[in-house]
Design a protein around this nucleic acid. Sequence first.
DNA 1: CTGTTAGCGCTTTCAA
DNA 2: TTGAAAGCGCTAACAG
Lengths: 308, 308
Amino acid sequence: MTSMSDVARAAGVSAATVSRALRGEPGVSEATRRYVTEVAKRMRYAIARDASSLAGGRRYAVAVLTADVGRGDLLAGAEGALRAAGYDVLLYVLRDAEARARFFEELPPLGRRVDGVLALSVTLTDEESDAIGALDLPLVAVRDDDLREALRLAAGHVLELGHRDVALVLPEDVDESYDELLVAEGLSVRPEWTLWSSSTVAGGEQVVDVLLDGDRLPTAVVCGSGQVALGVFLRLRRDGRDVPGDVSIVSLDGPDLVSAVGITAVEGAWRERGEHAVGQLLAALRGEADDAKPPSVHLVVRESTAPR
Amino acid sequence: MTSMSDVARAAGVSAATVSRALRGEPGVSEATRRYVTEVAKRMRYAIARDASSLAGGRRYAVAVLTADVGRGDLLAGAEGALRAAGYDVLLYVLRDAEARARFFEELPPLGRRVDGVLALSVTLTDEESDAIGALDLPLVAVRDDDLREALRLAAGHVLELGHRDVALVLPEDVDESYDELLVAEGLSVRPEWTLWSSSTVAGGEQVVDVLLDGDRLPTAVVCGSGQVALGVFLRLRRDGRDVPGDVSIVSLDGPDLVSAVGITAVEGAWRERGEHAVGQLLAALRGEADDAKPPSVHLVVRESTAPR
DNA sequence: CTGTTAGCGCTTTCAA
DNA sequence: TTGAAAGCGCTAACAG
C-alpha cells in the first residue's frame, strides 16, 4: 500500500511537503501543491487516517448518536454533510435504556475516537451531556420534538379554517401543555381537550375513545405524532365519523405513513436539519460560532383538514 | 489522557505486557492479566485505537453501507452486534446514484479505515462488489428483497383460507413473475392478475383501479411492499369493498404502517438478520466459515385476511 | 517555501 | 512469562 513517503519520493519532495500539500496547509507553493496532488492521485494514494490522527491529534470523525434509526432523513442528511466535509461517521444506536446506559458507561474511548458528537433524535439528560462535555467533545443535539413552531403552524391552520373546538394530543413524555402558546395563537383552551398519549396508533385510537366520552367532539384534532394521527384517523372512521367532514386532523410530525394516508402535517425538513446540525458542529470544531439559522418546519396541507 | 505506559508504570509492568493482558493475548500469567486489567479499569484507561491499528494493522471498524436508512431495524441490529464485538461502525449512506458513484470513486481510503464491509439493503453490482474485494476487504451483503420465501408463506396462507383467485403485485424492479413458485404452492396463475407497481401508496391505489377494470376481482391480493398493501387497502375501502370481507390483503413486507393498520404481513426479522450478517462478516474476518443459518421470515396474521 | 527531526501510543519481534 | 527496542505512517516544530 503506497505510503506518503512513496508519494514524496515519486514527486521528489519530502514527506512533510506532501502532507502540507495534500491538506491544503499554507507554506507550499502553488506549483508544488498542484504537482504533488497530481502525483498522489496518479498513485491512488490514500492517506492513513490512523497515522494522521495519531500524529496530528485531529481524528476527522464524528460520533452520531441516535435513539432509533426511524428518522432516516435526519441521519442521512447529517451523514452526507459530514462525509462532504471529510469526516467519518461513527454510528451509535442508543436503542433502549440498556444500550444507552452501556454507551455512557463506556464513554472514555469516544474521546480518542472522534472530534465531536452529534445527537440526533435522542434527548440527552443533563448528566449525559455533561459526560460528553467532560471529554472535551463539542456536542450538537437535534431534537425532533421541538413542538412549539410546529404547534404554531398547526394552530394557525385550523384557526384559519374556522375551527374553535380543537383538541391537542401530546406525546406522553412532554410535560408542558402549551396553553399560553395556543391562547397566543387565538385558540381557546379546554383542559379536557388537552390529552397525552403514547406515540402509537393504538394510543391515537384510545384518545378518540376518550374524546367520544365527552359531551361533544372537537372539530379538529392536532396530534403530536404521526402514529397518533393515524390512530385517530382510523378510529374516527371506524366510528363512522368523516375526516375531514366531521373532524379535521393535523399531525405535528410527518413520517411516511402520514403522507401515505393523506393527513395534513407539519413536515420537518429533516434532511436539512441534519445538515444544519453538522454545520453547527463543524463550526464548533473550528472554534467559531455558527451563523446559520435552523431550517424551519412547514405545513403540508392534505386531505385530512377542511373548513369547519 | 492516560496512556498505556501510564498504566504500565502504575501496574509495575511493561507496556508490552499491558497490551497483551488487555487484549487477551497469550503469554501473560493469569495473575498479571487480572491485575493489569484491574489497574487499567481503575485508571479509566481507554486504548487509543489509532495507535493500536497503526501498529497492529487491525482496525476494529466495519463500513456499513446502506441505500437509505429506511430499514432501521436491519441497521440497528447490525450496529448492536458490531458494537458488542468491539467494532466501530462507519456509516455510509448511498442515497442516490450520485452518492453511490462518489463512494465507489473514493473507495481507496476504505481499505485503511475498516476491516470489512457490510452492505445492508443495497444490491451491489458485480463491479461494485469486485471493487471492494480488490481492497481485500471481506464483504457481506443483506438483500431486503428476497421475495421467494415470503411469497411462499403468503401463498400458503391465502390458500389455506380457501382463496383461489389471488392477485400478486410485485415491485417494479422485480423481473420475475414467480409463476412456478405459485403453481408449486398450489395456486393457479392468471397472467392478468400478476401486476407490477411502484412501491408507493399511490401505486397500490392504481393497482386496484386496474383490477376493478377486469371482469371480476380477486378474493385476495398479495402485495410486494407495505406501501402498496396500504394503497390497495385504502383504495378498496374507498370503493366500498370490505377488507377482508370482499378481498383479503397480505403484504410481503412489514413496515410500521402495515402493522399500524392491521394488515397481515410477512415480517422479516430484520434485527436478527442484521445480527446474522455481522456474524458472517466476523467469521470471515477470522478466516472461518460461518455455520449459522439466516433467520427466516414469518407470517403475522392480522385483520386483513379472512377465509374466502 | 522546503527539509529534517522527533515523536504520537501502540504492537511486535527478539532476547532474557 | 516478561521486557526492551524497533517501528507503523503520519504531523509539527525547528531550521535553513
